[in-house]
Amino acid sequence: MNRKWMIVVMILLLIIEGTVMPWIIPVEWRMRVIPHFVFIIVLFYAVYTTRYQALVIGLIFGLLHDVIHYGNMIGVYSFSMGLCGYLIGKVFGEKRLGIGWMIVVSILGSWMFDSIIFLIYTMFKVNHMSYDWALAYQIIPSSFLQLLFALIVYVPVRKVLDQEFRPKLEED
């Protein structure tokens, strides 16, 4: 399995986010727990490959999400995914961190991602709720779903991403 298949997997995840997940999440939590699985894969790219790759993949898949679910404006997810991918890559990237750090990264990353989205929608006067409310209502609950997903896919995704980089590291 190589990098090309990751793209297919990410497109599948993008589809699953909008189709299967609304049925799996219990009714009471449906408005509060929002799956961002593609974003978690972007975080894996940021930590285990280079930050530039995370930036490009974040921008492309964010834009795809924006176009498919075009409601208010295009570019919100694209901007936030690209920026988060880059920043996380800048801080945590290329250190070959373990699963413990990945837990921290996925919680920190999803908090950052949701906060940037909140900020953009507030800036453009689409959202009028306070940040405290958003934090308790959806940002914290969804970060747990993101963490769960990150733990489930940790082993296979890391295997695929490391595979590409191992020969290069051995050369060094």
Binding site: M21, M31, I68, G71, N72, Y137
Partner: peptide, 14 residues
Amino acid sequence: VVSVNQDPYNKNIT
């Protein structure tokens, strides 16, 4: 319905 977007600031369905 073919898909649901759960984003709380941009809820829409296709």
